[in-house]
Write a protein that binds this DNA or RNA. Structure first.
Lengths: 337, 337
DNA sequence: GCAGCCTATGTTACCCGTGCCATTCCTAAC
DNA sequence: GTTAGGAATGGCACGGGTAACATAGGCTGC
């Protein structure tokens, strides 16, 4: 770290106060739009701020009030690019609205030690709240401690004692996708699930299973991917070898890309031979070939809702956004045999 | 904000000191692994830390050092999901390595006022450095002021007086893509560019133009998208109507998805009728139909390099990663007429 | 004309980890 | 035995914004 990285000696409120001929307190009040400041005084202060290039320093406030007006966001480094971006944007927008800034902590992979380190890091930073957008595979004592001390919301649905939970109704997403395939005339629906550590993945799988059971169908064993298109491709290669597969519910759009590619390479066309429904409705879902029938999730709103829940803006209640089915061209009636 | 959002009264070093029967200073030394601490004293202190569940508080250090150990990252809210995620991950990883945390500021659209607001917000937070991952369409006085006071790196290549610049060689990316199409036997290469405000887009376009000029070909007028697949689709519709178009260089994978869709809908097949080369190599590029021939960019490394540049870890020098051409199936020789 | 209140501003203390210096005790060297 | 040096520890001030309290005018109402 070179000295160029230092902020140098920045002017303090006291400096501004001196320049404006008032007390530091008045400067503080002016900058925070406190009501009881004379218009003329305010003008003088703002002029001084301008001249000295004063910049606010949040550390003292954190020190004395314990509030940093910063929220921490825990993300996974790889996979699910679209959803991650959208959640981040939603969080940042809602936080900004409320005067909070957002500090991110990415973890390279789902690993308890890394998770703990991230939470610790955010805790050390003094964040006022934490939004966890990855599943908690296992919760350590220290994690419990942190989430008890700092308000926490998990977006994925996993929980600690302290954390509140918010999630899109993944159950319903799985049900809708499966039902659509059954409605199209398919007798059986296969499933490429997400990693079982993710509650989202588990719920989608359960939705699929229950929908099939309700229709009196024995669910085939689900295959499991890791959200990546590559994992979808691998599972797709397996499914392509099973002649009776005519309909697949894939737990994410990105995996669906891989599944479709594998099917195509084995000469099975989508949707003529096999119908596919996935989940997310990423931007590219409408532009690939064939355009994906998929269950849309509003990640942006989820992110915003998480912040609202954290800040108590929302009157709590695990507010759950409803997913909606977007029918495009990856589904069709099964070929009559 | 409810009182539940407070961190509550956390134990301080003084509390630990009292419990261990030593001074706060000794606690501080113990926790920082200072050499001159008796083994027995250390043990007592650590026991007290454990018992009181003491957690370190960074605020006072920030207060006295004037450093926040936080870097600001400016992102665009929409579009380029993959690249944005990857840059973010790279930045966060490198920053974390160096003991810094990352605070994000997203702007909804490329707009000078929003840009200024974001920088101001980061400045108010007291970040030690700023990484700007969007183009600076116009630089205001205040933006100049901020980037002079706070070390800044732009990842896209735009500059202010203060900011240092880092970028992948986009020129070369454009050249490589175009040359590949010429090498495949095409006589002319069309171009769907990114928004002209983005230096990346401009450089890719220039690389394309120069490559054509070097081959003695008059470049056709470029079409312009906004990075979204939807904009690629619109431009693709136009290109699909021009019979002599046999090769298109598209400035991003996501737009290429749209272009291909439009071509297909008009009955023009890729790559049999039209060859496509794009830029980025997003994860899905290998799994769509046809798999995209594209120029790979290492966004993660760019993000990491930006941090290195900011922190002076790197010996400056606008370090530039070289792009590489990934040949897949969206390119072929032109159909002989 | 004075209590009562409101507005505008100033003063003081506090938050807590750490740099700096002081202090104590001990050992080694002369 | 005395001094020098080192190890272990304590005391104190500092950083800068802000809550809480104090103060000084000015205005209303009876």
């Amino acid at each position: 770290m070179t000295e160029a990285t230092m902020r140098g000696k920045q002017p303090s409120m006291a400096d501004v106060a001196r320049a404006a001929g008032v007390s530091a307190q008045t400067v503080s009040r002016t900058l925070r739009d406190s009501p009881n400041v004379n218009a003329e005084t305010r003008r003088r202060v703002l002029t001084a701020v301008e001249q000295l290039r004063y910049r606010y320093n949040g550390a003292p406030r954190l020190l004395s009030s314990g509030r940093s007006f910063t929220l921490g966001l825990v993300l996974l480094q790889s996979g699910g690019y679209y959803s991650r971006s959208a959640v981040t944007a939603g969080v940042e927008a809602a936080a900004g609205q409320a005067g909070y800034s957002v500090s991110i902590a990415t973890i390279a992979e789902l690993d308890t030690a890394m998770m703990e380190k991230s939470l610790l890091k955010l805790s050390d930073q003094g964040v006022d709240g934490i939004i966890i957008a990855v599943p908690l595979i296992s919760v350590t004592q220290r994690m419990e401690d942190i989430t008890r001390d700092i308000p926490t919301v998990t977006v994925d649905g996993s929980r600690t004692t302290g954390a509140r939970v918010l999630g899109i109704d993944q159950h319903e997403a799985g049900r809708m996708a499966t039902q659509h395939l059954l409605d199209s005339g398919h007798r059986q629906v296969w499933h490429v699930a997400g990693p079982d550590e993710w509650i989202e993945a588990r719920q989608r799988r359960q939705g699929w299973q229950e929908c099939l059971r309700a229709a009196g169908i024995d669910a085939p064993p689900p295959l499991e991917g890791d959200w990546s298109p590559e994992s979808g491709y691998r599972q797709g290669q397996i499914l392509a070898m099973i002649p009776e597969v005519t309909a697949i519910f894939v737990a994410s759009d990105e995996m669906a890309f891989g599944v479709i590619r594998a099917l195509r390479e084995r000469g099975r066309s989508v949707p003529a031979d096999v119908s596919i429904v996935s989940v997310d409705d990423i931007e590219l879902a409408a532009y690939c070939h064939p355009p994906l029938t998929t269950v849309r999730q509003d990640f942006y709103s989820s992110g915003a809702a998480a912040v609202a829940l954290l800040l108590g803006t929302e009157d709590a209640g695990e507010s759950v956004a409803q997913p909606s089915l977007i029918v495009r061209e990856s589904t069709a009636a099964p070929r009559s045999r």
